[in-house]
Every structure is written in C-alpha cells, then in structure tokens.
C-alpha cells in the first residue's frame, strides 16, 4: 500500500543525483561517511560495505541502457482523479507536487532501449513519485509495455520499486494488478522473455502482480521485497521481525528469486540473460 508521500530529501528539482542535501552521506549499511559525489559515482553503492542505496530513475538508465538512451512510450497518458480523493490534501495536489519534484508524469517510465546491443522493452518504477505506487497510469503503461514488446518481438526488462497499489485511486488501482498480469500472460504466450528486476523496496500489490512472475527474477542486494510490509506484519502479529526478513538474501533462500546481482554487474547479467533466453537470437 502507498505510504503517505513524505517529502523525500532528494526530491528537489535539479538535484536528482544526490541522495540528500548535505555534502556527506552516512552509509545505511555500515555507517561509513562518504561524500555524496563519491557515492553517486559508484551508482550509490557503498565502497566500504557494498550497501545499495536507492538510485534515481535517470541513473538507472545511465547504468543499464546503451548510451543511456530510452525512447519513451506513452508519456501522454496522464493521471486523473477518479474518486476525487482527499485525505486532508487533495489527490490532484499530491499528483502535481510529485510531478514537479520528480519531473515525471507518473510513477513509471517505459520505452524501447538497447542493453548490450539487444533491443528490449524497458520499464522502471519511479519510487520518488508517490512511493512508486501503481494507479491507472502505471497499470496502463505496463500493459502497453508488454503488448508493444510482444508485437516487436522484444524481451521485457522491468525494474520494480513500489510500495504497492495507489490508495488514492481506490479499487481501480487494485484492478491494475489484473490488467498488468493479463498483459504479461499474453506477452509470455508470444514467446519472449520477461526479466523482472526487484529494487528496494517492492511490496504490496506490485509485488503480488508482475514483480515475482519473471521468467527470471533478479534482485539487487539488500532490497526489501514482500507482500505485506514489515510494519503491517509487526502490528498484526505483535512481534518484532528477524534481521534480514524480506531482504534479498531471504528471498533467494526461500526460492523466490534466481539471482542477487550487484549494480556493477547488472547490465552484463541482463544482456546475457536476454541473449540466452531469446529463441534464434535478438533482431
């Protein structure tokens, strides 16, 4: 479920590269203090302990896509407010603010790209946009990503990072789970591979739709991945959760992901998987 959108420290226009507003950053893994610049150069991976800090969408493009180039699809699809939802602040205002701070139209970007020379349909959730929550626009874009990639006979690589369904669109958000998974199924039937990449965090309705249904599921290190968020489980069971619960290693151990791949190796791994899984090679 979507968390209320707090003002993320990095959400200032023109400052997409930094994790926060200071010069230094304290590693969430080991506590080592490094300059933000240094951390950004390493794609937000701690040089001391290897902790993967959240990486903004444009850096993902830079890390994974040939020439960092994405031919974006369906940017003209824009969110609306079907329930006229207001929880103290109107949903329309929340949307406008998220659009301003992220420079994105909604919580996902999709399009055509190349990875290691292979053409792919590519999608990446924008966690900074209302917690990467899936409303109608995200659902529609994912459906179109699968439909168009099937038509163009390309593999799909989708990077998930989401708190789940977007509460502000109510039941219509829930329906996006069915819509995206239905499109995925048709895509599968067309015989191209779907590589699901699980970023921190991937939970709720997004975890329970396309995220764990990849032909190959690839998690980044120390990502939180699960259906129920840890706070929900803790409050339901009135217990504290064990260290590492719902983190990448936990998922690997329980058979839910195939690989945990650190950022420096991710592009090569994905390119290799696309090549191996594409019958007769990529066009």
């Amino acid at each position: 479920m979507t968390l209320p959108d707090k003002t993320p420290a990095q959400a200032r226009p023109g400052e997409k590269r930094s994790l926060g507003q200071g010069v230094f950053h304290k590693c969430e893994g080991c506590g080592a203090v490094v300059t933000r610049e240094r951390l950004a150069e390493a794609f937000n991976v701690c040089g001391a302990c290897g902790w993967h800090h959240v990486l903004p969408v444009d850096r993902w493009r830079e890390l994974l896509l040939d020439e960092a180039a994405l031919e974006r699809w369906d940017e003209h699809i824009a969110p609306t407010d079907p329930l006229e939802f207001d929880d103290g602040k109107p949903y329309r205002e929340r949307l406008a603010r998220a659009q301003r701070t992220t420079s994105r139209t909604d919580a996902i970007e999709i399009g055509r790209a190349r990875i290691g020379g292979h053409p792919v349909g590519y999608g990446c959730f924008v966690f900074g946009f209302m917690g990467g929550s899936m409303g109608s626009v995200v659902g529609e874009r994912i459906a179109r990503l699968f439909e168009r990639s099937a038509a163009e006979r390309m593999a799909v690589i989708l990077l998930h990072a989401s708190g789940g369904a977007r509460m502000q669109e109510g039941i219509l958000s829930l329906m996006q789970m069915a819509k995206t998974v239905a499109a995925l199924r048709r895509f599968r039937d067309a015989g191209r591979p779907f590589l699901s990449v699980l970023l921190h965090p991937t939970t709720g309705g997004v975890a329970a739709s396309t995220a764990l249904l990849g032909d190959v599921n690839v998690a980044e290190p120390n990502a939180l991945i699960g259906f129920a968020g840890p706070r929900v489980i803790e409050s339901t069971l009135r217990t504290t959760l064990p260290e590492g619960f719902q983190r990448s290693d936990f998922l690997l151990e329980h058979g839910m992901v195939d690989l945990i791949v650190p950022r420096p190796n991710l592009k090569a791994t994905l390119a290799h998987l696309v090549e191996l899984l594409t019958p007769g090679g990529t066009p």
Binding site: L212, I225, L241
Partner: peptide, 23 residues
Amino acid sequence: PGIEAEERGQSEAIGKAIETMTA
C-alpha cells in the same frame, strides 16, 4: 500478513493465481 506467508511466497502465489485466471 504473516512471517510464514512471506517465507512461502505470498506475493508469487497471488500473482500466479491472477495470471492463471487470465488464461
């Protein structure tokens, strides 16, 4: 929303049930 449900793959189970129904 339980610990064991997560261990046994609640997300995947729900996702797969949805997928199976679509087909």
